[in-house]
């Protein structure tokens, strides 16, 4: 068990971070080069003011009509994304790891808060799953990969909760937790999870088109 643990926290962790960072840079760069080569007009119409205006409206909860028409989805999406980012960075166990391994530390979340946030992430994933199964217009679009991505995202939180609370088999669960987190990191550049990096650009571009050329709102 110990050797597994050292592997997943040692070499595999390094690999995961390298794949995540290098993969993201590679994917981003290849899209950037392709845009320069084939869609150079995009740069011509990109407008910082209108791009930021659009991004801001879509980063404010209920800032767009689309969000107002789908209140449950809006609440779930915002809470989900906030907790998805904050929890792993500020959960006590992770802060300790950074402290032990690199001697850098920062604020850690109270355990209660981390638990609540973990539940929010898992709950939102269940809500997203429900949408994919129950809503006909979402079901029609859903592919097997969408379920896998949902699992990839939910797994680190479910296993982390299990391991932290030392439920039966928590030692193995800790290893699964670490591996699942690493899978998620490595999946980002190669799956739709990459949307986190593309959002400012797709939103910014349509915002620039609507603001600069069409002189209309896009929210």
């Amino acid at each position: 068990m110990h050797s597994y643990y050292s592997f997943v926290t040692g070499p595999l962790a390094w690999i995961a971070f390298i794949v995540f960072i290098c993969g993201s840079i590679w994917r981003f760069n290849s899209l950037w080069q392709l845009t320069k080569k084939k869609d150079s007009a995009v740069f011509e119409y990109m407008d910082r003011k209108f791009a930021l205006r659009s991004i801001a409206h879509w980063l404010i909860p209920f800032g767009s009509r689309s969000m107002q028409l789908n209140p449950a989805m809006t609440v779930a999406t915002f809470l989900f994304h906030i907790c998805l980012f904050i929890t792993p960075i500020f959960v006590f166990g992770h802060v300790m790891l950074w402290k032990e391994n690199f001697n850098i530390s920062w604020f850690a979340l109270p355990n209660m808060a981390a638990d609540v946030m973990t539940f929010i992430v898992i709950g939102s994933c269940i809500f997203f799953l429900w949408r994919r199964i129950k809503l006909p217009h979402v079901k029609y679009l859903t592919t097997p990969l969408d379920f896998i991505i949902l699992m990839i995202v939910a797994a680190p939180f479910m296993t982390g909760f299990w391991a932290y609370h030392q439920f039966p088999g928590f030692v193995s669960m800790t290893i699964i937790h670490i591996v699942s987190g690493e899978i998620m990191l490595m999946a980002i550049p190669f799956t739709k999870l990459f949307h986190m990096f593309l959002f400012p650009f797709t939103r910014g571009y349509i915002g620039s088109e609507f603001g600069g050329v069409r002189m209309a709102k896009d929210w």
């Binding site: 899209l31 950037w32 392709l34 845009t35 080569k37 084939k38 869609d39 995009v42 689309s66 028409l69 789908n70 989805m73 949408r131 994919r132 809503l135 217009h137 979402v138 679009l141 859903t142 592919t143 969408d146 739709k192 990459f194 949307h195 593309l198 650009f201 797709t202």
Partner: peptide, 26 residues
């Protein structure tokens, strides 16, 4: 005739279905 725009539009779609309420056909 196409490039990154098409690729990004097709690849980034998260299949969330929120566009449905934007379309009068739907």
């Amino acid at each position: 005739e196409t490039g990154a725009r098409l690729k990004v539009y097709v690849d980034t779609c998260l299949h969330c279905g929120l566009c449905s309420k934007g379309c009068h056909f739907f």
